[in-house]
Structure formats: structure tokens, C-alpha cells
Write a protein that binds this DNA or RNA. Structure first.
Lengths: 256, 256
DNA sequence: TCGCGTCGTTTCATTATTTTCAACGGCATT
DNA sequence: AATGCCGTTGAAAATAATGAAACGACGCGA
């Protein structure tokens, strides 16, 4: 494992642990030597990616992370472009809408607007959405890079509910449906009682870079509602893709 | 220089350069060997911090950066806490308001709400605010960690306008004023025709972690206005500090 | 008050990684 | 066809990272 990889996994540990962590805990979680962990941490501190409380010696993610994220957002305004569309979707339907982006670590929710209703779906920011178990994941897979798709569809699927897809063939058929329709319908695959519709966000090459979705309590929506939501998210996804990648986005349909 | 330091400077180069950069350009900008640069980049790609366009081979900052930033924001909601206050300030005064956070690389603007008026001050997101030449910087210095302050006040000040403070003694007196009043007034130190008022954001130890400021065209504001703005930003800074660090923030005043 | 365990930190020889230089093939321009 | 630049790879040399051990500091319980 490269030094950079080790440093990044420390950042991951800091991000997924508590707000602040002690050296020993970080070393344990990352499975690195105490001394190694500390040296990596000071290197990260020197670069602003990690901060340390002078009093308690506890470590936390630093402001340099936010700085890098701002610079990225300046060049590639995924959030700035997608957020208004998500808000609009949520306002139009009264349900929770969320936007996710694909990174090496999976599909991650980057913006969420919760439904105003009392019975609403909650999606945490930064949550990793399993590709096989969520509508967003399936919409993404339907238009993902072949290598990413192949890697994600070979099996070993974690089971979240009795409805989670566990069979590669069944997953393939769902993905195929999504590819045909341009949106996916997910039913309680990740959490019981939650149905959702999702569509991919396509780059100029027609490959998915993220997804946008609506999630609703199963008791509130019919299959007809979900299909209607599907059309909405598909349009929303197209809009974001076009704004981001400049209008030239053409879905890679099989022959069509 | 440590390996992670090199990797981070590549991220910096990618962030401050164009939207996408070629290997040779990155290597030149960072002053690393071409081969070294590439191997660091692939390590970063493997961890999602950098992405590469399959077709053009161009590199850009990756979604992993945004993921880390979200995880940080979840633990330490600087933006989520500060943004509403900034919006309120801008609405109350009709001038541009902005929030900045201190990182190893300096004071960086993380949220900006522009004035609605035609003649308005523009502050780019992610901009580095020089500590000696901006109201935000001086407000920050007045309550900064002693070591940070000492490092920033020794001189070698870049000159931006004829009004930029270039003398350490003069800077010290401005900082002292800010410390006494709880806010700073900046007049055309960074950009001609721009006056501003800023206040620090203090952590539980009374040390500055960022700043909040109002900026207005010089032609529109009197000294009285600026002092009024100063009170407003001071209150706003206190509010953010208390929300973030939990009410216990006590400014480190000299004896007082 | 006195151990006791844990924590963060530092040292140093060993180990492993990274760096550098050179060379190669691809690609576009000349 | 030739030139120049690019991205990529190989292999020896240089450098940085590693892990065990030890130290002082701190908090805890006896």
C-alpha cells in the first residue's frame, strides 16, 4: 500500500469515526503502527488536512479538506448545479430528494432535501449508497463505465432487508430495465418501507457520474406515483448532466 | 519533503490550475519529476482524490475530496452553522458578507453572500485572504494562536494597493485596536475602493478559527456605518462561535 | 502516596518505497 | 518522413517509512 493510500485511509478513519479521535484509536482503526500513524498524521497536519487540539491532543479533519473541496467545486460545480434541481424536485413532489456522486469509494450522497411531511425519509449527507440495493445505485449501474459495472455486479451483495437483491441475474434484469426506461425503481432494497425512483447523471460520453433520486414511504406511493417520479428524476438528471457537461450528453443506449 | 506533502501539493496544483490539467503541466507547476508526478497521481486516483479523463488523459480533483469534506462538515458544521448567519448579515445590511476559515494555508473564504445592489463587492469562494491586508485577517490575528500571529506579523507583507499595511508596527496597532473593540475595520488594504468590517470566530479557548466580514464600496459607507457593521459582525461572529464550540467561548482579553 | 497501565512521543537500525534518469512508443505538427 | 512533446515504464540509486523499544507524562485505583 502506498504512503498516499495510507494517509488517505487515515483521513477516512477520521471522517467515519467520531468528531475527534485519539492517536491510539486511529492507529487501531486503520491497523497501522502507532508511530507510523502519528508520523502520517503530522504530515497531514503540516498540510492542513488534519488538525490537532492543542490541549487534548485529539485529531480531526482539517480545514484544508474544505479548501480543496471548494477549489474542486469551483472547477466542477456538481453541488452548485445539482442542489437547485434537488430542491425543485423535493418541492414539486413533497418527498425527500437526494443527489449522489460516484467516487472510488462508491456512490455518496452529496445533497439532500427532506420532505416537509411528518412521515419522511431521512438520508444522511455523505452516506454510501450500495449499488445493488438502492434505486440510485441501479440507475448508476445502468449507465456506469463497463469496468465499474462489471466489478459491482459480480456478487457478494450485502443484505440489508428481506427485499435486497442478492442474485446477480436479478440485479442484471433490474439494471437492464433502468437502462431501457432511463430511470430505476427501488423497493425496500436498502431499508424496509422505503420506495424510491432514481436516474443517472450522465457525462458527455453518456457515462454515469452520479444519480438523483426521490424517496418516499411505501405506504404513501403507488406504482403509478413511482413511475411519475421516475420521469421527474430522469428529467432532473438530464438537466444536471447537460448543465455540467455542456449539452452534448447522449445516453449510450444499446443500438437504440 | 514527505510523500504526503508532495501528494497534497499536487492536489493544490490541481485546485489552483485550470479545471483539468495535463501531466506535464502538473509536474512543471509542482516542480517534480514527470515520473514521480505520475506515480503520485495514480496513487491519488486509486484513492478517489483525483480523477483522470479516460480519453484526454487530463487530471482533475476527484469526488473523494467532496466526500471527505462532507464527512468533516458532518462532525464540524462550520459552513452549515455559519452560512445562515452570513445570509442574515447580508440581508440586514444590503452589503456583501463573507465567512472565512483558517487553515494551514491561510484564511480562506468558505461562504459568500453578495449584495443585491448593482455596485457590489465580489469575493470569490475559496479565495485566500492575506492576514495583513484584509479586515478579516486583522480580526483573525487579533485573537489568533500566538505562534500563528507571530509568524504572520513579522513582515514580508505583500503590497496590494497603496493603502496596504506594510509596516509591522502599524499592523500591530491595527491588531491591537481590533482586539480591544472585538472587530476590525479595513480600508482598501486588499483592493482599492473597498472598505470592510470583520470579527473573529472564537473557539472555546478564545482563539480565532475564522472570521466573518462585511464588505462595501467605499463610496457608500461612512466611518459610522463601518462601526455599526463592526458591531453586527462581532455579534455574528460570537453567535457562530457559540453554536460551534458550545457557549463556553470567552475571548482571551488582556487581564480585562 | 504509590505503583500500574495507558498514552503520546522520540530514537535508531532496518526495510521498503520512492526517486531519478533513461529509453520507448504513440501522437500531432512540421 | 522527421521532429518534438507527451505519457508511460524499467532499474539502480537515494531516500523516506517502518516498527520495536524506551521515555516521560498522565490518570486511575489500590
Amino acid at each position: 500500500m502506498s504512503t498516499v493510500g495510507k494517509a488517505v485511509s487515515l483521513l477516512d478513519v477520521l471522517g467515519s469515526g467520531g468528531a475527534e479521535m485519539a492517536l491510539a484509536d486511529i492507529a487501531r482503526a486503520a491497523d497501522f503502527d502507532k508511530a507510523t500513524t502519528r508520523r502520517l498524521l503530522v504530515a497531514l497536519i503540516d498540510n492542513g488536512l488534519v488538525e490537532q487540539d492543542g490541549g487534548t491532543r485529539l485529531y480531526r479533519l482539517g480545514a484544508g479538506i474544505a479548501r480543496l473541496a471548494l477549489m474542486r467545486e469551483a472547477h466542477f460545480p456538481f453541488l452548485r448545479t445539482g442542489a437547485p434541481v434537488v430542491e425543485r424536485l423535493a418541492a414539486a413532489t413533497g418527498e425527500t430528494a437526494h443527489l449522489s456522486e460516484h467516487s472510488r469509494r462508491g456512490l455518496v450522497s452529496v445533497h439532500v432535501v427532506e420532505s416537509a411531511r411528518a412521515n419522511r425519509i431521512f438520508v444522511p449527507l455523505g452516506e454510501q449508497l450500495p449499488l445493488h440495493a438502492t434505486a440510485s445505485g441501479i440507475a448508476f449501474l445502468a449507465f456506469a463505465e463497463p469496468r465499474v459495472r462489471a466489478a459491482a455486479m459480480t456478487g457478494g451483495f450485502e443484505i440489508y432487508t428481506p427485499h435486497t437483491i442478492v442474485d446477480p441475474a436479478s440485479l442484471a434484469s433490474h439494471v437492464e430495465d433502468a437502462r431501457r426506461r432511463g430511470y430505476s425503481i427501488g423497493s425496500q432494497g436498502f431499508e424496509e418501507g422505503v420506495d424510491s425512483a432514481a436516474a443517472p447523471i450522465l457525462n458527455a460520453a453518456g457515462l454515469a457520474t452520479g444519480a438523483i433520486a426521490l424517496a418516499a414511504p411505501r405506504s404513501r406511493v403507488t406504482r403509478g406515483d413511482l413511475d411519475r417520479y421516475g420521469m421527474l428524476v430522469a428529467a432532473a438528471g438530464r438537466e444536471i448532466g447537460e448543465r455540467l457537461y455542456g449539452g452534448g450528453a447522449t445516453p449510450q443506449l444499446k443500438q437504440a
